[in-house]
Write a protein that binds this DNA or RNA. Structure first.
Length: 407
RNA sequence: GCGCAGGUGACAGAGCGGUCAAUUGUACUAGACUGUAAAUCUAGCGCCUAUCGGCUACGGAGGUUCGAAUCCUCCCCUGCGCA
């Protein structure tokens, strides 16, 4: 299932081959392209091939809400997407945060971290916990987490009453969706949550993780457990130890990763030693180029992030020389490609920066598509270069060279 | 020529005596985006000033008023109708 084929002698970076029960295989480290609603926005099945996309992650919560009754007769992600690569589904645990405290706190999972770690806030956290149980939260927060699962009242789906998701249900849905890799249902916490709340949420996640293993019936899907614990060292270590000891097929690191890059890399260093070396490790929702290198260096095998696709639709293009916003006036008359020598479908088609500028400014959705094609190709290509550098023993050089140019 | 309706910042289009440098939308500019509430969001957008504040502005010229984009007079222009 997962075989490590090369290791970097100077770091924890490794190259592996991940094979899922259906037989599909991919070489790691790799970047999982996000296709929340069983489609990578703007891209067709052919586009996925053309961008060398071999693994995609869709979302349990959104597909469940979108499909409704149709879920019971769902054909499965591979057929729905006309896609032969590997598929993953996120469990819906992230929506507990993204539709909940992310909105109430107006933060993302990577963001500033308050000074609460130096001021224990047991009482505040206790009050918060009780308020949540009583359903007293900000109006922006449309999630209510209880010990047995999460209730959503999601205006995006026109909810007039609460809908309920928990570990059992998430696994059942994920078995119907039929991805090759599925994730345990967890509670993703906010960077603004205090130590104690984060700890209690972590314990819920641990209980739910056991539940996921218990209720899983199908054996043609790999189940990954998720490590939580915010940016707190003891919690992260405890969570990694607990989850790492459960019989999962792989492990993911989720949740709030702190304020700075340093916090995030610390989280990796705290958790990695407790996650079985021979199993694949996924870093959820990350990331940027620098984060990828730092993650690989610390032993992460797979990443997923909306950056390549979302930023493309917003006009931000990634190259080996950094990122630029093609909507800027300076590109209006530019007749050079996004990146010289790039073999992506967009650059191969001689679509220039100036043409993209025009498409974005005229709201032509082709702009978003060409940009997505480029970015997805770019991230996939970069991962390939990373793999090669590990095999060649030049990972460290490649990292420094690339980061120097990109950042 | 007569009748009617109008002329507001890059454009569209509110305001119709003070709280108006002027609602809003678009365009433009900048910024953000990390398990997709996101082809989205935030901010700026007359001139000078780091800021306070000052200056010039609602077709033009006068006038009424403590005060006018808003009221009056004349002029110029545009649209529609009638000649």
């Amino acid at each position: 299932m997962f075989t490590i084929t090369a290791r970097d002698p100077h770091s924890k970076a490794r190259v592996g081959t991940l094979t899922v029960p259906s037989g599909a295989t991919i070489e790691t480290p790799t970047y999982v392209i996000v296709g929340t609603n069983a489609e990578v926005r703007t891209l067709s099945a052919q586009d996925l091939k053309d961008t060398h996309t071999g693994i995609i992650i869709a979302n349990t919560y959104h597909l469940w809400r979108k499909l409704g009754e149709k879920l019971s007769s769902y054909s499965g992600l591979h057929i729905a997407m006309d896609y032969q690569g590997i598929t993953m589904t996120d469990s819906g645990g992230f929506q507990v945060f993204s539709l909940g405290f992310s909105r109430e706190h107006e933060v993302s999972k990577v963001g500033f971290f308050p000074e609460h770690d130096t001021h224990p806030t047991f009482l505040n956290d206790l009050i918060l916990q009780i308020k949540i149980w009583l359903g007293i939260t900000h109006k922006r927060n449309s999630v209510r987490v209880m010990p047995w699962g999460a209730y959503f009242k999601d205006e995006n789906y026109g909810d007039t009453k609460k809908v309920f998701l928990n570990a059992r249900k998430s696994i059942e849905i994920q078995e119907k969706l039929g991805a090759d890799i599925i994730l345990a249902f967890d509670e993703c916490t906010s960077p603004k949550h205090g130590y104690w709340y984060t700890k209690w949420a972590m314990n819920r996640t641990h209980r739910w993780a056991r539940k996921c293993i218990e209720v899983k019936k199908k054996n043609d899907q790999l189940l990954y457990g998720i490590v939580q614990g915010g940016a707190f060292e003891d919690l992260r270590k405890q969570s990694a130890k607990t989850i790492g000891n459960m019989p999962f097929n792989g492990f993911a690191i989720g949740g709030s990763l702190g304020a700075s890059k340093k916090d995030m890399y610390n989280v990796l260093e705290w958790t990695m030693p407790f996650l079985p070396d021979e199993k694949p490790r996924h870093l959820l929702g990350i990331g940027q180029i620098r984060d990828i290198f730092e993650g690989v260096e610390r032993g992460i095998d797979t990443f997923d992030c909306v950056i390549p696709t979302r930023e493309a639709r917003h006009g931000a293009l990634w190259t080996h020389n950094g990122r630029f916003d093609v909507k800027k006036g300076e590109f209006k008359d530019s007749n050079i490609p996004i990146e010289e020598g790039c073999e992506c479908p967009t650059c191969s088609n001689k679509v220039t920066r100036g043409m993209l500028y025009g498409m974005f400014h005229s709201k032509n959705p082709e702009g978003g598509k060409y940009a997505t094609l480029h970015n997805v190709f770019f991230f996939n290509a970069l991962m390939s270069e990373i793999r090669n550098s590990i095999k060649n023993g030049t990972f460290s050089d490649f990292k420094h060279k690339t980061l120097q140019r990109i950042v």
